[in-house]
């Protein structure tokens, strides 16, 4: 295509897009005037009027809606970061197990990955909540001595008390994402030449040591980009927490929208929050990526 033709195409596309957007926004304006709603964010500073089952900072229903949304934010962050840690541990050990010398371990890991990835996450979350955690006895019992106390009222781990909802979301997200991370790790391990494995084995290194010191560091550049997209998936999937009644960002936004009727404004805030969360995770992963690359150049 020559330059002027290209220029004209772009002008036509812009005009077409602007027209469509104009029509949509005009419709929105007509609808908002018709329903008498208009567009405003005053409601953020009015009392929320609903209780939250869980809030990391002091909160009561007479506090402002903005404060309630912040609690939702913090609840989301809590479960996302705990989930990232747990899913990474699970995923890396499963991915490594799929390349271990022990055939039993390999089989179990393959079974776990194959099974979990074929079942919808929402169904798994419902299972963890309604069957695994609400199915616990109401009297606390301690299967591992003082380390952990379990009951259907909550889980107490080393003195830290977690709600059943939090535990269900955390475990559901971690087990689901762990299976995907395991695939990422396996792919990364496979990208390391076989000679490296043979080399450390012939040096008499144990499997664990060789994996940690020889293979994983070389696999890391291949693993990290895919890993960060799994972390983003985990963050986005954490919104399914609403199905088990965990007061995360989406659940609180949903309640706010039902209470105030401010669907457009509430939705915009939700979108902004998620763009921010994406930037946060992407930024963190980029720092990690750069650190890894730098440390490898030093060697």
């Amino acid at each position: 295509m020559n330059r002027s033709k290209r220029w004209w195409w772009q002008v036509i596309i812009v005009i077409g897009l602007l027209t469509v957007m104009g029509i949509l926004i005009n419709n929105l304006a007509v609808n908002l005037i018709r329903t008498g709603l208009g567009l405003s964010f005053d409601w953020l500073w009015r009392p929320a009027g609903f209780a939250l089952s869980e809030h990391p900072l002091p909160y009561q229903s007479s506090d402002s809606t903005a404060w309630a949304l912040l609690m939702g934010w913090l609840n989301s962050l809590r479960v996302i970061f705990a989930g990232i840690v747990l899913a990474t541990l699970l995923g890396v050990s499963t991915g490594a197990a799929r390349r271990s010398l022990n055939p039993l371990l390999r089989q179990i890991a393959a079974l776990y990955v194959g099974f979990i990835r074929q079942i919808p996450l929402l169904l798994q979350l419902l299972f963890w909540y309604f069957v695994a955690f609400l199915g616990l006895p109401s009297e606390p019992f301690a299967p591992l001595g003082a380390v952990i106390h379990l009951s259907n009222q909550g889980i107490s781990l080393l003195g830290v008390t977690l709600s059943v909802e939090f535990a269900a979301v955390l475990l559901g997200l971690s087990v689901f994402t762990g299976a995907s991370i395991a695939e990422v790790v396996r792919g990364g391990l496979d990208s390391v030449p076989r000679g490296q494995w043979e080399a450390f084995r012939s040096l008499g290194m144990t499997e664990g040591l060789g994996l940690r010191r020889i293979v994983l560091p070389q696999a890391l550049p291949a693993i990290l980009p895919a890993l960060s997209s799994q972390y983003l998936n985990l963050a986005k999937n954490s919104t399914l927490a609403i199905a088990v009644g965990y007061a995360d960002l989406y659940a609180v936004s949903d309640t706010t929208i039902t209470q105030t009727g401010r669907a457009i404004e509430g939705f915009l805030l939700l979108l902004l929050s998620f763009l921010l969360l994406n930037l946060l995770i992407n930024g963190g992963m980029q720092l990690l990526n750069r650190a890894v690359l730098r440390s490898q150049h030093h060697h």
Binding site: L24, N27, L28, V30, N31, L32, R34, L232, K236, N237, S238, T239, L240, I242, Y250, D254, I257, A263, I264, F267, L270, L271, F274, L275, N278
Partner: peptide, 22 residues
């Protein structure tokens, strides 16, 4: 790709009608 699916579905169910003629 930055937003969760449930937010998009929510948009489709509750907000999409607002962008269409009555």
């Amino acid at each position: 790709r930055a937003v969760p699916l449930i937010a998009v579905l929510f948009f489709g169910q509750l907000l999409l009608p607002l962008f269409l003629p009555v």
